[in-house]
Write a protein that binds this DNA or RNA. Sequence first.
DNA 1: CATAAACGAACGTTCGTTCGGTTTTTTACA
DNA 2: TGTAAAAAACCGAACGAACGTTCGTTTATG
Lengths: 228, 228
Amino acid sequence: MKFEAFRKSIRLSKEDISRDLLAENRDRIKIKKEKVAVRNLVKILDAALAIGNAKGFASMSLRDLSSEANLSMGALYAYISSKEELLDMIQQQGRIVVVKVMNESLSGIDEPAEKLKTAIQVHLYLSEVMQPWFYFSYMETKNLPRDAHRKAIESELLTEGIFAEIIEAGMAKGVFRQVDPRLSAALIKAMLQDWYLKRWKYERRKVTVEQYGEFLVDLILSYILIRD
Amino acid sequence: MKFEAFRKSIRLSKEDISRDLLAENRDRIKIKKEKVAVRNLVKILDAALAIGNAKGFASMSLRDLSSEANLSMGALYAYISSKEELLDMIQQQGRIVVVKVMNESLSGIDEPAEKLKTAIQVHLYLSEVMQPWFYFSYMETKNLPRDAHRKAIESELLTEGIFAEIIEAGMAKGVFRQVDPRLSAALIKAMLQDWYLKRWKYERRKVTVEQYGEFLVDLILSYILIRD
DNA sequence: CATAAACGAACGTTCGTTCGGTTTTTTACA
DNA sequence: TGTAAAAAACCGAACGAACGTTCGTTTATG
């Protein structure tokens, strides 16, 4: 699968995500009209991710956010009820998208090697489309309140579990070698994460997301496939 | 190499590190007597790494630090000249140790596969001994002032370069397959980092640092060694 | 008794959050 | 279609709490 094909196949513009997020938090957001709410949510999320990823969410003041989003302090508080809740909202929305896209993309694929390859590519491409989200979620997990923090960890383990299950199925079918599925999955995740955590590095070296994906698939399959 | 053997072979107690750090910053630290200075630096660094890793350096107030380290606000400022400088000091000291230990451990090894294996193990074991340092440095890089931030990035590329050079040497000798050395090195680093970034995960699953190291070496060598 | 170290109240800023007032948009009726 | 009332959205000054940092004073050391 090509990256551009993937990007077009999923509906994930900023507006789409903001609309979902609005629907999810209809009770907490005080703005009535969807069109207005979505327009400003896009501005708020854009600004929060930009500032937050540049200097950390804790170091971002709501005055920074207010001026970057071109909204007054008062207007800001019509969309969020506290700074902490904004943090939670961003993370939650990211997780929802990941689970949805991963499940949609993998259903119907049975051949283990093909499924593993697709899972790696989809996760990688998704992290490319939503890079600020992924980076933010990774770096700010520990600043979440207790309950949200627990959910973030569960989510990490859930996506890891997807990879582990594919590997186990491949082993059961005799297509994959006998390896530690959980540890293999953990390392796949680690390499997937490097792509969005160290974007500056790969950008500088002009490594494309497709090249990275191919390399990663090669590395994993050369380890996991039965040898001749 | 066993982890315990490694731990004993390097002198890296908190006191040792604090003493080095004191020597490095003799002009900025106002305390005259080494014994007193080292004792309190240990307390300050312990507290800063503990609080910083728990809730982020930006969210750690100097009052938190003061009470955790059992030092008054005034006393704290006899050891550090600003909060930002403390951040810089911790990172700088970590980098010095990494470069020193890596260079010492790799000199004299010529056989590429052996050298690559040792490099992976040493980096991994070192990150285990100094886990709070490594975690802290990774998570707080972006909060550094401009110049210190640049140095942190250089350091990331430097250690990556060590792995890349070993791989290139192995390719030149005909022991390794023709692979992308830079990308391979990047992924090795990504997997090494996962060990200290997600310690909670591996601890929970009772994966030891030696098991992780073996798995990682297996994975890399199965990709990079010439096949029969 | 002199020097070193530690103390903690106080300073000026900046923070997250609130709220009374203003502007903009929609609605209702002619 | 024009307009006044009502509703929605936005504004930014103001508040108390908490921040990093300083400094005059007290305590410990040798």
